[in-house]
Design a protein around this nucleic acid. Structure first.
Length: 134
DNA sequence: GCCAACGTTGGC
DNA sequence: GCCAACGTTGGC
């Protein structure tokens, strides 16, 4: 199983929207690298959900329930979408400042490549992040 | 609200 | 195929 982190601007789609919807189509990705990562997602993979701009924190956890397919919001066949289902909203939501100073997370793509919106997370990094939410 | 970083586009 | 111009993202 693999681990991922997706970013969302809460003004366009937030974790509380996901909480309301229960599951959602993660569409609208228009970046090749992000799309390539999304195409590698497998059913059952765990996905951390990060809010950019406002909270700048990892808000919760979702699970891949449908693997990549044509993005329904465009006819352009270059783009794909996956389906995510909410697993949980964290009580403690580690923010960017905390992530930056946490040992073991200094190489995370979230920091290294601030504009990438779908990125892989190692098991090690995932475990460290999960510890921060407790 | 500003601006740096970075991806994309298009002219040559 | 290079690179300047432009648009967007996202942290501050």
């Amino acid at each position: 199983m693999a681990y991922w982190l997706v970013k969302s601007d809460p003004d366009s789609y937030s974790i509380s929207d996901l909480q309301k919807d229960i599951s959602t189509v993660w569409d609208g990705v228009r970046n090749y690298q992000a799309r390539n990562n999304m195409n590698k997602m497998k059913k059952g993979d765990l996905v951390l959900v990060y809010h950019s701009n406002k909270e700048k924190a990892i808000m919760g956890l979702a699970k891949v329930i449908k693997e990549a397919r044509q993005d329904p919001t465009t006819d352009d066949e270059r783009w794909t979408a996956v389906d995510l289902k909410l697993e949980k909203v964290f009580n403690k939501q580690p923010d960017l400042a905390l992530i930056k100073k946490t040992k073991g997370l200094e190489d995370i793509a979230l920091i290294k490549q601030s504009r990438l919106s779908v990125m892989p997370i190692t098991k090690k990094e995932y475990d460290i992040i999960m510890k921060l939410t407790k």
